[in-house]
Each structure stands twice: as structure tokens, then as C-alpha cells.
Computed example of a mutant assay.
Amino acid sequence: MTANPPDGLKAIVADPGGAVIGLDFDGTLSPIVSDPAEARIHPDGPEVLVRLGGLVGAVVVVTGRPAATAVEYGSLAGVPGLVVLGHYGLERWEAGALAAPPVHPGLDLVRAGLPRLVEGWDGVRVEDKERAMAVHTRQAADPWATLEALREPVAALAAEAGLVVEPGKFVLELRPPGMDKGMALSAFLRERAARSVLFAGDDLGDLAAFAAVRASGLPGVTVFSGSPEIEVEADIVVDGPPGVLELLGSIADAIEGEAPR
């Protein structure tokens, strides 16, 4: 672990059975790529998570992606006790079973209107996430300026459809209201009667989960794996998915070092 680990990390190592390890997917377990459909977990990820999952109370992936997609792209089905909360917590994958509410009716309007709204914007992509739609500007000539130009019309379309806009780095996601990563993580911590928590994320949508860690009253650790373009207060800052997995591996090492022989 780090040379002077935060108290939250010490609590996880001292009492791993009470620990919840929460993780975003894109930018945290998977490197960011131009085409979201090409995203895959870092090669070291499955082994590290399988190892850690056998040591702690629970590993939970909280992602904006469909839960089943995160399981597939992350090769996560073999992680012991893994739970994936997809679409910011609207979906739940556990032990091969997927639970999800009906699709929001406003998505039909967005699915029809969003491609027309971005027509003519070079490099802008629309992603259909089944229960949400996203506009990506990463491949535009000026990603930030394009994102800003689209922010207002996208918000207007979302409002008409009864959806909310979740902003991120070079992305605007239109999704159902009523749930975010913080709410999803908080509910999971209560469900598991957690005694400590770590959450790692890389983008604006993860800030609610960071806030949930701080509000939980538990010994907690926030880990930021994103870029310096996003200002975040976190206990530990690492360099992308390799840094996250190195940290998780060091936690597993420390737990095994503390175990009775």
C-alpha cells in the first residue's frame, strides 16, 4: 500500500470481512477508448479482482453502463460475490442474474431525436445504452467546445423526455432520474452492513459516490484515477486503471500478510 496509508485503508486491512470495495468501470478498471464498445478491462484486472473478492466483504462495480455489458467487457463473472450496479444503480447483476426496472418511456423520444440533434457535428457519436443515451465529443476537432455547444440543446431534449443529463469528460448522458452512484453505493453499504469502504472513480459521475463515502460515517477511502482536467478531492490519486489495480493488489497483499498462519 502507500507509505502512509489513510485510516480507511488500515480499517480495510484490519477487518476485510467488513469492507466494501466499490469501483467505477470506464477509466477505473478499463482504459478510456475512443469507441465505448471497444472498452475492455485492463489485462491485470480479472486476476486482481478475483483475488480481492475472496478476501473482502464485497466488491461492487457501480457504472453508467448496462450491468451485463460491464460484466462482459470486464470478464467479471468469476469474481467471488461480485455485484454490478449498472445504469447508476438502476440495474443489478449478481450471481448471473440481472434485475432491472422497465425502460423509461422518454427514451423513445430521445432515441429518435438525438441523432437529428447532433447531425452535422463532425466527430460526435451517439451511444445507445439501452436504458440511457449518450453523446460523445471525444473525437471532435475541439471536444470541449463541441460539448459546450451541445449542452443546452441536449438538456432541452432530456427535459422534454423527462430525463436528466449526466455530464462527464467529453460526454453528455441522458438517463432516467431518481438514482445516482452515491445513492446506489449508500444503499449497498447499508445492505451489507459495511464497516469500511473504498470507492475508485475517474469522472464527474463518480463524485456522488465520493460524497457517499464521506457521508457514510465509516472509515473510508476515495481513489481518483482520472485526468487533471477534472478537479476532485480524493484521499489517493493514481494513474488510471494500472494505478487502481496496483493499489487493489497491494491491499490484497496487506490483507494476506495480516491473516493468521
Results as ranks from 00 to 15, higher is better:
Ala3Thr: 11
Val164Gln: 12
Glu173Leu: 07
Leu245Gln: 09
Gly18His: 11
Gly45His: 06
Val126Tyr: 00
Glu160Gly: 03
Ser196Tyr: 13
Val171Glu: 01
Phe25Val: 14
Thr69Gln: 11
Ala208Asn: 10
Glu91Ala: 05
Ser30Asp: 04
Leu245Cys: 08
Ser196Lys: 13
Val33Gln: 11
Leu82Cys: 07
Asp24His: 11
Val223Tyr: 00
Ala77Val: 13
Ala11Glu: 09
Phe210Trp: 10
Trp144Thr: 15
Ala252Cys: 06
Gly22Asp: 09
Ala156Glu: 15
Glu173Gly: 11
Ala112Arg: 14
Leu172Tyr: 02
Leu90His: 13
Ala100Ile: 00
Pro66Ile: 04
Ala3Trp: 04
Gly86Met: 02
Leu85Tyr: 03
Val164Cys: 09
Ala211Leu: 05
His87Cys: 07
Val223Phe: 00
Ala58Arg: 13
Gly89Asn: 10
Asn4Met: 12
Arg151Lys: 14
Arg125Lys: 09
Pro177Gly: 12
Ala252Asn: 07
Thr63Glu: 14
Pro177Met: 11
Leu247Asp: 12
Pro101Ile: 01
Val20Asn: 05
Ala39Leu: 09
Gly201Glu: 09
Gly217Trp: 12
Leu9Ile: 13
Val83His: 15
Pro46Ser: 05
Glu152Gly: 07
Ala187Asp: 14
Ala200Phe: 01
Ile236Pro: 06
Gly226His: 00
Leu174Thr: 02
Asp7Ile: 13
Trp121Phe: 15
Asp7Gly: 14
Arg175Pro: 05
Pro260Tyr: 14
Thr146Trp: 02
Ala97Leu: 12
Arg190His: 14
Pro102Thr: 01
Asp202Pro: 05
Val171Leu: 03
Gly220Cys: 14
Ala254Glu: 11
Leu157Phe: 13
Gly81Gln: 01
Ala234Val: 01
Asp206Asn: 09
Leu9Cys: 08
Val84Ile: 07
Gly168Ile: 13
Ala161Asp: 11
Glu256Val: 08
Gly54Asp: 10
Val59Leu: 15
Ala145Gln: 13
Pro5Leu: 00
Ala14Met: 04
Ser250Arg: 15
Thr28Cys: 11
Leu204Ala: 15
Thr137Lys: 04
Ala37Val: 05
Thr222Pro: 06
Ala67Gly: 11
Gly123Pro: 08
Met133Val: 14
Pro143Ile: 11
Glu94Ile: 02
Val79Leu: 02
Asp7Trp: 01
Ala140Phe: 06
Ile12Gln: 02
Val62Pro: 03
Leu29Thr: 06
Gly120Cys: 03
Thr69Cys: 03
Gly257Val: 14
Pro143Asp: 12
Gly81Lys: 01
Glu38Trp: 09
Ala209Ile: 09
His42Leu: 11
His104Thr: 10
Leu189Gln: 05
Ser250Ile: 02
Val223Glu: 02
Gly86Phe: 00
Ala140Arg: 04
Ala215Ile: 07
Met133Trp: 14
Arg65Pro: 05
Leu245Pro: 05
Leu248Arg: 07
Tyr88Gln: 15
Val50Phe: 01
Gly178Thr: 14
Leu185Ala: 13
Val244Tyr: 00
Val60Lys: 01
